[in-house]
């Protein structure tokens, strides 16, 4: 029985050491921003969605799900949207 008590104590000590250690590491004493830039993040998400939609459009065309008469107007609309988004992202300090 004593053996298990010793094992439990050793386990608790090792865990305590490993858990507390990061608090004393200089590299981890930096403060991190947890809020971020929400408007810019949303714009970047939108940019990603638009580029993805362009890719899906090309794929749907290649797979014969839409015809060339639907492809061109949709591509133009998405390209226009992507351009506007890129400008707005630049204005918000992103790339």
């Amino acid at each position: 029985m004593n053996m298990w008590i010793v094992a439990a104590a050793v386990m608790a000590a090792i865990l305590a050491f490993l858990l507390v250690k990061p608090l004393f590491e200089p590299a981890l004493s930096v403060e991190a921003d947890l809020k971020g830039d929400a408007p810019l993040r949303n714009l970047l998400d939108e940019k990603e969605r638009t580029l993805r939609a362009l890719k899906d459009l090309e794929l749907d065309y290649a797979m014969g799900k839409i015809g060339s008469e639907e492809l061109e107007p949709a591509r133009r609309a998405l390209a226009l949207e992507a351009g506007k988004l890129l400008e707005e992202i630049k204005r918000n300090g992103g790339r």
Binding site: P22, L23, F24, E25, A27, L28, S29, V30, E31, A32, D33, L34, K35
Partner: peptide
């Protein structure tokens, strides 16, 4: 919180 230490 708005900020937190990486160590935490």
């Amino acid at each position: 919180r708005a900020k937190a230490q990486l160590g935490q």
